[in-house]
């Protein structure tokens, strides 16, 4: 069976700066790929290429084995590729259920069908194991973990088949991170969503990912199943890269 997402030879330059060069990676349905790398390694650029925000200068992207040219974020979304950004997706002033259905509202004529959206939000969050006692509360009252969980649930509800999570665990405590890790584990168990997680915490990445890939200076330098690596190895690789760059730097 073809991979849900395959990136082949992708390059991206911004003027003189080469952000990505010859990047290859793949992820299948029910698989979680952890994408690791230092700041400036090109992780966010790669995510923006996959979600249709940037056009690659070279290479190709295949969804379910079919090559696609992503024209925009909306186009990528229509193909089932959705991105959840770190704690930025929700509108604080809106209720949980309005956030869940933002721009996909159910209506009766011109009026919002709040009752239906409330019920569907409760059902969907319950199915996904997201514990929100009251979907009518404003998003501002939720914890960081709950907000991120709702953003993920919203993407899944909107039929995302390839989910890109941009540092979903950043600035979260252990308890809050657990909410997201459990959610990702549940999604993995469903088997119909391919997930790419950008992570900084190697231990958390290894806990939930099936494979990890390391992006260094715009290239994938490591891609291996989590069972065949360890936190110590990943740390050594990152440190070695850092020391190598320091030695190579002028002066």
């Amino acid at each position: 069976m073809a991979d849900a997402l395959r990136v082949e030879g992708v390059a991206k330059r911004f003027g003189a700066l080469t952000a990505l060069q010859d990047v290859n990676l793949h992820v299948g349905r029910g698989e979680v790929l952890g994408l690791l790398g230092d700041n400036g390694a090109g992780k966010s650029t790669l995510i923006k290429v996959i979600c249709g925000f940037h056009r690659p200068d070279a290479g190709r992207i295949l969804v379910d084995g079919i090559e696609v040219v992503l024209r925009s974020v909306d186009h990528a979304r229509s193909l089932g590729i959705d991105t959840v950004y770190q704690d930025l997706a929700l509108v604080n002033e809106l209720s949980v259920y309005h956030n869940m259905f933002l721009n996909r509202e159910h209506r009766i004529g011109p009026l919002l069908n709040n009752r239906l959206m409330r019920r569907l939000a409760e059902e969907h969050l319950r199915e996904m194991g997201v514990d929100i006692p009251d979907v009518t509360v404003e998003a501002a009252k939720l914890s960081g973990g709950q907000r991120q969980a709702i953003a993920v649930a919203r993407s899944v509800y909107s039929a995302a088949r390839i989910l890109l999570l941009d540092e979903p665990l950043a600035a979260m405590g252990a308890k809050e991170a657990t909410i997201i890790l459990d959610l990702v584990a549940d999604l993995k168990a469903r088997g119909d969503v391919a997930i790419v997680i950008i992570a900084h915490n190697y231990a958390q990445a290894l806990q939930v990912c099936d494979r990890v890939a390391i992006l260094q200076q715009g290239r994938i330098t490591f891609d291996r199943p989590t069972a065949e690596t360890s936190v110590a190895e990943l740390t050594d690789l990152m440190v070695a890269d850092y020391r190598g760059r320091r030695r190579a730097a002028p002066g």
Binding site: V73, D74, R77, T83, Y85, L88, A89, L90, V91, N92, E93, L94, L102, N103
Partner: peptide
């Protein structure tokens, strides 16, 4: 007005 980035990402 509440979150212009979030609204944009939601396709508004």
């Amino acid at each position: 007005g509440g979150n212009i980035l979030g609204a944009t990402e939601a396709g508004i």
